[in-house]
Write a protein that binds this DNA or RNA. Structure first.
Lengths: 95, 95
DNA sequence: GACTTATTTGCGCATGTATGCAAATATTGG
DNA sequence: CCAATATTTGCATACATGCGCAAATAAGTC
């Protein structure tokens, strides 16, 4: 694995490795339907602006995908993609 | 999943989500035999003290285990344990 | 157009973290 | 005991990051 791929993987893990962001991911796990940011706000008790920034990070790392709908932004997990990347690491580590 | 478990998982991901630490993990992946810290130093071009601190973090998060051998510390991956924790997250995310 | 709601952005602040260097500690071998 | 090697720790520093608040933007509703 080259340095670029390693950095990309590290960035994914870093994005997931922050408590409130991981809380958002878990919240989205439990939702059959996508949620808007305000709704996600409730799961971690921080300001809306903070949630907005966390969701931006998660979007950049392709953990979630976003869709505009009127004045709302609807978020959903990239389930298979994230799961695959984590399993690839698990496989590599297990050897 | 309760808040404590979530924090523990976040801490694991944070430990893995730093470039040089992930490099150390990958280096240990490729070693059939455990390695001492000085040897691991070579894979990321940082000071020995930095590697020492990174290995401490990885040990605290149970990513690696350490064994004293003379004046050396021998490190090896907790392969199955880490792989299991990552797969559990992957399963959860995939839903 | 005025108002409301959803979200983002700018700013400042406080805290966390990665790093290097030098000194300290530990342990082995003469 | 002394020298050499491996590792840790204290300290300073630079930078990143999470946060809240207020203002700005975007888009629907009346």
């Amino acid at each position: 694995m080259n340095s670029t791929d390693l950095k990309e993987l590290a960035d994914l893990l870093k994005a997931l490795g922050e408590f409130n962001r991981l809380s958002l991911v878990y919240e989205l796990c439990q939702c059959a339907k996508p949620r808007n940011a305000m709704c996600l706000c409730e799961c971690c008790s921080v300001d809306a602006s903070v949630v907005s920034r966390h969701l931006k990070v998660l979007t950049q790392e392709r953990v979630v995908k976003m869709e505009k709908k009127g004045r709302e932004r609807i978020y959903s997990l990239n389930r298979t993609d994230v799961a695959e990347r984590l399993r690839a690491l698990a496989d590599r580590i297990e050897g």
